[in-house]
Structure formats: C-alpha cells, structure tokens
C-alpha cells in the first residue's frame, strides 16, 4: 500500500496534524493515521479532568478532534502497531483486522507522545511488592477500568498528573496520606496544589522522599525522610508510614522506540529525535511532533507545534511532487543552530 502521509499516533498531536495536512492541500484519502490502542485519542482518553484548551476535559477534546478528523474523511486505524520504519519510509504494521502489512509513505509524522519514567523509584530500598505503580497507571485503573489501585496512598512527585491523580484518589474515597517531592520546588504550577491538594487536605512536602518500601506481597508501609541540600536523606527525620499503595510520577520521556530502532539521531537532553527547523528528523521525509519530539509544558504548545509540523510536511510533499529541477535542498542548508546544542 502507498500513502502520501502516514501519521503514527492518534493523540492530540496526530489528529491535529491530520486536520492541518488536509487544510494544506493533502487529500484526505492520501492520509492514514495509525493508532496502537483500541481507541483514538491517546492519553487524552484517561484525562477526565478539565483544563484542556477552553476548559474542556481531555475526553471532550479527544472526541472533538476525532469527530473533526473523521468528518474530513481521513482513515484512522486502531489496534495498529508500527513494528518498524525503514530509511525509505516503508512501515511494517500489524493489526488484528489487517494482519501483517507494509505501507510505503512519501512522508511520515511520528506523533507517538510520551511515556512515564520509572527511574526515580528504582533507587528506593526495600522490597518490590504489589501496589507500587505509576501515576498514569493509577489514573487508567480509576478512570477507565473503574478500580481502586489503593485506599491509603503515598504519592511521590509533583508533576501535574501526580496532583491530579491525588485528587482523583481522594474523590474516590482513598486517603492520600502525603505527596512528597525530592526537589525544593514543585514541577507543576502552584495553582495545581491549590486546586488538587488543599481542598482535600492532602499534605505536600518538598525536600522529602520515600527511602524504603516494606511488604512482602502487597505494600505495607514506606519510610519517608527529609533530604538535605545535597539530596541525601537526613536519617533522624525518618518516619515509617503505613500505606497500601505507592504512586509515583517521575516525569516523562518521548516514546520513540520506532525512531531509535530506525537509527535516527536522538538528542541527549530531550531524549527525542534530532530535528531540523521544519521538524524533519535525520531520516528524510520523516517528521516528529508533540511530546514524541520533546516533553511540552502543556497541551496548547503541543497543538501549536503539531499545526506547524503538518504545514511543513505539506510543503515537503509539494516540493517532492514538483518536477525535479536542479536540486538545492534549502532545508538542509540552515539546520537549526539551537538543535545542534
């Protein structure tokens, strides 16, 4: 199968790229969106809280974008996982409905978003029982499956999602004993502390961390310590706190296994693919956008970048369609200086 444009991922980035591409002259029948999960919308689907664009919930924003893309007639395939991407833009895709397929694309946009890091909890001593989970997993259990991952919870981290999940747990009747952040300032806006923690009387402790996990089968308790200026635990501040779950949120990293396996150059600081000013990666015709590119501050910035990315993809495709003149390849001439570090 041949397509002009294949977009990998149907989160907000992927969907906005599809809409923008049509707006910029790429025919909808020439665009294919591939989604690994059973539903379109990506992580938005588990974000039932508001604060997206004009105060929509994540799920509302997702359903608006999905409707818009479908109305344009762009084909979106769910349960479709890209196994690999070659240097000449051949994608190997598997899905239960279509089987094993090769798709050749003139241009590809990687809009695979991000995933949670687990690194922060790894240095914690103690056992490895059930009941230790990431904030994203906790959110998914509560909002999608309708189950409680814990009823007496300690939370590590001060990202947006750490606070939002603390609030969700509290609303569902769990006791959030405390939220600790090893750093001296919260990663998320202070506004979130006011909105999510204070109304439920959830304590928030900066310069604190969990230092030990207890429990053979299910988690039973944790040690919490204050940290000194170098980040080392101050032993005499150690407190053992009983709990039945530990939720962590240690930040995000771009989910770009496809890019790494394809041999793209990856930036050391952002962990996302290296790009030119037009969002093209080191594989010609393959672009990256949204949180797959680097972790964005908020959804507005993701959507803006996705629009610009899709516009430059449209330009790239127009150029590729023009009869070949003497080739100069302007884009290569001015590689973004900032990108070069």
């Amino acid at each position: 199968m041949n397509k002009k444009l294949v977009i990998i991922g149907s989160g907000p980035s992927g969907l906005v790229c599809a809409m923008t591409a049509v707006k910029n002259g790429i025919s909808a029948s020439n665009i294919l969106v591939l989604e690994r999960e059973g539903e379109l919308g990506g992580t938005l689907n588990q974000c039932i809280h508001n604060g997206f664009l004009k105060n929509l919930t994540g799920t509302e924003l997702a359903s608006n974008l999905i409707k818009a893309v479908k109305k344009l007639g762009v084909e979106c395939r769910t349960e479709s996982c890209v196994l690999s991407l070659s240097a000449d833009r051949v994608l190997t895709v598997i899905s239960p409905s279509q089987g094993y397929q090769k798709i050749k694309a003139d241009a590809v946009i990687i809009a695979t978003g991000c995933r949670e890091q687990s690194r922060g909890v790894l240095s914690i001593g103690g056992t490895r029982p059930a009941g230790v989970l990431s904030a994203g997993a906790a959110q998914r259990y509560i909002n999608i499956e309708g189950y409680m991952p814990g009823k007496k919870t300690v939370v590590i981290g001060s990202t947006d999602i750490a606070f939002i999940v603390s609030r969700r747990l509290a609303i569902e009747g769990a006791k959030v004993i405390t939220v600790v952040e090893p750093k001296s300032a919260p990663l998320s806006d202070k506004k979130n502390i006011k909105d999510c923690l204070r109304p439920f009387n959830i304590p928030f402790q900066l310069n604190h961390n969990v230092t030990k996990i207890y429990g053979k089968e299910r988690i039973e308790a944790v040690d919490i310590c204050q940290l000194d200026k170098k980040g080392k635990p101050i032993k005499k501040t150690k407190q053992k706190i009983e709990c039945d779950s530990l939720v962590y949120s240690c930040g995000y990293t771009p989910d770009v296994d496809i890019a790494i396996e394809a041999g793209m150059r990856i930036k050391r600081d952002t962990k996302g693919p290296f790009t030119k000013r037009n969002y093209e990666t080191t594989i010609p015709g393959v672009f990256v956008t949204g949180n797959a590119h680097y972790i964005h501050k908020n959804i507005d910035k993701i959507l803006k970048e996705s629009v610009v990315t899709a516009e430059s993809v449209a330009k790239f495709l127009q150029k590729a369609n023009q009869p070949k003149k003497e080739k100069k390849n302007e884009d290569n001439a001015h590689i973004d200086r900032k990108n070069q570090e």
Binding site: G146, Y147, E172, E217
Partner: peptide, 12 residues
C-alpha cells in the same frame, strides 16, 4: 502470589 492483588476494589 496469593496476597499480592493489583487492585483493591471498585471505585465509587
């Protein structure tokens, strides 16, 4: 193991 349930009951 037998006492290492992943989840603790339904939400409200």
């Amino acid at each position: 193991s037998s006492n290492s349930n992943l989840l603790l009951g339904k939400t409200k």
